[in-house]
């Protein structure tokens, strides 16, 4: 097995009195493309958000390349890291959101350049070259000067992916990146993700596109009520689910 990138142990997260993640254990290896499936409310988004500290969490540890994310031990106490350290750690994982979240007052190019300039502190021309390279890669080389409001949803999502990937993250997180798109725009975004997977990018991919998960993922994690219900390779899981929960879930999912 190749090198472990991400190690999650006993991850617990609550919102008030609602326990959303009830002890997640999981290791992600270099080059794995993991589809995370499961019904709405099962904790998929929360899991991704904990991995890059968009949410604080109460229990367990997450390690990226061996370094604990978000917290450190101080004696027997567990302390949140400084905002600056957390920012540095967040830059190691890229994230693409359902709602694209492009900065509307910046061109596509400026959106991609921002992190390169402010976080990586690259010189402007170097940052621009990287931005253009990735915009090209997602098929938007000719839209670099366009503002988000001038782009279709599919194009915006591709810029958002370029923005994340340009930071050269160790791990990419995708949270239902095609759910807000009109059906005819889904394909172009999935195509981009397929390309990244083929390049060997390690990724966790929350998706409702079961066919896509089946085709692209090297491994599937089924989330069920805050725990990992099943974890395995897509062929076995989709064809012969071990649990009734997964079988039921697959029955109600569409495979188009």
């Amino acid at each position: 097995m190749s090198k472990t990138i991400l190690e999650i142990e006993g991850l617990r997260k609550t919102y008030g009195s609602l326990e959303v993640l009830k002890g997640i254990d999981c290791a992600v290896h270099e080059g794995e493309v993991i589809a995370i499936i499961g019904s709405s409310g099962s904790g998929k988004t929360t899991l991704l958000r904990c991995i890059n500290m968009l949410e604080d969490f109460e229990g367990g540890t997450i390690r990226l390349d061996g370094e604990e994310i978000g917290y450190h031990a101080e004696g027997s106490m567990r302390r949140r890291k400084s905002e600056k350290d957390i920012a540095r750690q967040r830059a190691l994982t890229g994230m693409a959101f359902q709602q694209f979240n492009l900065f509307p007052h910046m061109t596509a190019e400026a959106n991609v350049m921002l992190g390169l300039l402010k976080v990586k502190r690259l010189p402007k021309d170097e940052a621009r070259a990287i931005a253009l390279k990735w915009l090209d890669r997602v098929g938007l080389g000719d839209r670099a000067g366009h503002f988000p409001g001038q782009l279709s949803g599919g194009q915006q999502q591709r810029v958002a992916i370029a923005r994340a990937i340009a930071m050269n993250p160790r791990l990419m997180l995708f949270d239902e990146v095609t759910s807000a798109l009109d059906p005819e725009l889904v394909g172009e975004v999935l195509q981009v993700i397929k390309g990244l997977a083929a390049d060997g990018m390690t990724m966790l991919l929350v998706t409702h596109e079961m066919r896509f998960a089946y085709e692209v993922a090297s491994r599937v994690i089924f989330m069920n009520q805050g725990v990992i219900g099943e974890d395995g390779n897509p062929r076995e899981m989709f064809v012969a689910p071990k649990t009734e929960r997964l079988a039921d879930f697959l029955k109600t999912s569409s495979f188009n």
């Binding site: 890059n52 500290m53 968009l54 905002e83 600056k84 920012a87 540095r88 967040r90 830059a91 190691l92 994982t93 890229g94 994230m95 959101f97 709602q99 979240n101 492009l102 900065f103 509307p104 007052h105 921002l114 992190g115 402010k118 976080v119 958002a160 923005r163 994340a164 930071m167």
Partner: peptide, 23 residues
Amino acid sequence: IPKGLTEAGLAIGLTPIQIRTTI
């Protein structure tokens, strides 16, 4: 201003202060 923009800024590693000034 949608919260998602702040989160997108955080996700690429911007600090809260950088997010306030640039976004």
